[in-house]
Computed example of a mutant assay.
Amino acid sequence: MKKVFNILIVDDHPMIIEGYSNTIKWHFKEHPVFSFNIESATSIDETVKLVDNILPQNKFDLVFLDISLPDGNTTKMHSGEDLGLFIKSKLPNVKIIAITALNDTVRLLNIIKKLSPHGLLIKSDTDGEVLTTAIKNVIKGRDYCSHSIVALLKKRVTQNKVLDDHDIQLLVELSNGAKMKELLELLPLTKSGIEKRRRLLKEKLNVKSNSDRDLVLKAKEMGFI
């Protein structure tokens, strides 16, 4: 008897979900060992509702997770990483394959450090072969990164380039137009701590100007907010 795996595909583009789903069904339709049940969600809120209401016997084994998701309307989640951490808190044994359109090494390191996915793929080179290879590796307990990610990570970006939760929160509040008075109320940091983080963020993201606007634009370009 085949082992059945329950897959959840999360992406805000229905056509991408359809493409991944069709690829999985096609490549594994005659597989002798396992088969898949596939469900999907197109937003953070829809995914949270789905995971919260899932029955134990139908829990997901594998999640394909788009990192660049719009903010949730009913949650405080700002990204696929936040959603991935929520999914892992609800389903500790789930295996997550993160998929991103971003190919900046700093951003990729941030995804790895914060989420620790079992797989990491870049959308532009995720064809049928890459998708099925990732599935086969991950369900057998082996981590998998697509070749382009392996090449990018060989650039040896240092660990201090990674942004933590306070960095992300500061960037989010700056993007909302918060001034120092509001930042002191919103963040568990002193004025000097905020100023230091803002300076270090500009160094990490290679922003040459003193403008917070430039910092926010760069953070959005790199997919941090």
Rank of each mutant, 00 (worst) to 15 (best):
N160I: 07
G177R: 08
L109K: 11
Y144I: 03
L108P: 02
H78P: 00
H118W: 11
T100H: 10
I99C: 03
L184Y: 08
E182W: 10
L69M: 13
G80T: 07
P92Q: 06
L170E: 01
P117T: 05
H118A: 09
L83V: 01
V150F: 05
R107Q: 15
H147G: 02
S68Y: 10
I135H: 03
T75F: 05
G72C: 01
I96H: 01
L102I: 12
D125F: 09
K181F: 09
A151K: 14
D66T: 01
E185T: 04
I149P: 01
D127H: 10
D127Q: 08
G80N: 08
A101E: 13
V106P: 02
D143S: 12
V94S: 08
A151M: 12
L183R: 12
K191I: 06
N73Y: 12
G80K: 05
R156P: 00
K76S: 10
D82A: 04
T74P: 00
L171N: 00
N176H: 14
N110Q: 09
V162F: 10
S68C: 11
I96R: 03
S175T: 05
K95N: 15
L109Q: 10
L108M: 11
T126C: 14
A134M: 11
A98Q: 03
D167C: 07
S89I: 08
K179N: 13
S175E: 13
D127A: 09
A98I: 01
E129C: 04
K136T: 09
G84I: 04
S124Q: 14
H147K: 15
K154P: 00
V138R: 05
D125T: 12
G72N: 01
T74V: 05
S79V: 09
A178Y: 13
K136Y: 04
D66H: 06
I96M: 00
L187T: 03
H78E: 09
L171W: 02
M180Q: 10
H166M: 14
L152K: 12
